[in-house]
């Protein structure tokens, strides 16, 4: 009796996989999206888009970098029509491999010029700003520049996330503005100042709240995220550095169309939707990120984007991560 059952197993496997194959054959009208931005931040917008346009979306959520690597591996065979990334780096890597299609001018022109990629094959969706997060009761003298953090008064008190894409983008920008030699000096000084290393920005914010460290280099929205998760007010605030300091870098999440997509027009429709007033308001109010379309607006509790004295950095330059990685490896952070 039992051995009969065992014999059935291979057949069950076959049937299951066959049925799975036929079940997932792509429908012609739907758009396949690889989204590095989480469902929490995108899901309701996608639903609205489908409701308005009647276009079905098949969404693969994942890590931005992993999805970019996946698109690079898929190459010409990628089933994806649209790639949405949390940061410029991942989009840049796909763009550099010439896998993105040129975007329509009206899409490029609808965003603030800071958020247009010079290669004209992707645009920013939201702005995410680097800040210094700190515990207000333990920090009285806020740093004016990231250089202040190399001072011995900060020894052992700050947290950084060197493996995180947002930190690496910041270093890339620093190389762009100060050059490789100066950046290496700064990195070595920071490392010598005994910082604590974290995997994620949210863990830095949590550690500040828990009193493990007093401050850290993170993106601006993490203090809202952590407070929401913990369900209480947290003892962490954001602050900007002095005007034009590289520590105030504005990074972007963005969107592009795959060159291999056969649905370029539908793709453009989706991008236009995500750049619409409605979607951008959602990003500002619900996700607490900046709008790529209207830099005059601000998420609650933050100053408007155009009032941030951000350094003059070309967003496209943030995609050149190779040098950054080699530098980080050189100073022992990777």
């Amino acid at each position: 009796m039992r051995n009969r059952l065992l014999l059935l197993i291979p057949f069950l496997a076959l049937i299951a996989s066959l049925s799975a194959c036929s079940g997932s054959s792509p429908e012609s009208q739907s758009l396949v999206i690889y989204s590095g931005r989480a469902e929490e931040y995108m899901g309701s917008l996608f639903e609205d888009f489908t409701a308005e346009s009647g276009i079905e979306l098949e969404i693969r959520y994942g890590d931005s970098a992993a999805l970019a690597a996946q698109i690079l591996e898929e190459g010409e065979n990628s089933p994806a029509d649209i790639f949405i990334s949390q940061d410029a780096g991942a989009l840049g890597a796909v763009s550099a491999a010439e896998l993105l299609a040129p975007l329509e001018d009206e899409l490029l022109n609808s965003v603030d010029k800071y958020f247009r990629s010079p290669s004209k094959d992707w645009v920013g969706l939201t702005g995410r700003v680097r800040v210094f997060a700190y515990a207000p009761d333990r920090v009285s003298n806020l740093p004016k520049s990231v250089d202040d953090l190399t001072d011995s008064t900060w020894k052992g008190r700050i947290g950084i996330a060197p493996t995180n894409a947002s930190f690496q983008a910041f270093i890339t920008a620093m190389i762009q503005t100060r050059g490789e030699v100066e950046t290496e000096k700064w990195l070595r000084a920071i490392v010598a100042n005994d910082p604590k290393f974290y995997e994620k920005n949210s863990l830095i914010v949590e550690a500040i709240d828990a009193g493990e460290i007093d401050g850290g280099l993170v993106n601006h929205y993490y203090i809202f995220e952590v407070a929401e998760e913990l369900g209480r007010e947290i003892n962490v605030e954001n602050s900007f550095f002095a005007a034009n300091d590289i520590g105030n870098l504005i990074n972007a999440s963005g969107i592009g169309k795959l060159k291999t997509s056969k649905k370029q027009e539908v793709g453009a429709e989706l991008i236009a939707f995500l750049l619409s007033q409605k979607a951008q308001t959602f990003f500002l109010d619900e996700v607490k990120e900046y709008s790529a379309v209207n830099p005059a607006r601000n998420p609650a509790g933050m100053i408007p984007l155009n009032q941030i004295k951000a350094p003059a950095v070309d967003l496209a330059s943030l995609t050149d991560l190779k040098r950054t990685q080699q530098l980080l490896i050189k100073v022992g952070l990777l």
Binding site: A65, A66, T163, L321, T324
Partner: peptide, 14 residues
């Protein structure tokens, strides 16, 4: 494993 992951993630250097 972490270094491999970081290499993919940071530089897309496969």
């Amino acid at each position: 494993t972490r270094t491999i992951q970081n290499t993919y993630q940071g530089s897309f250097d496969r």
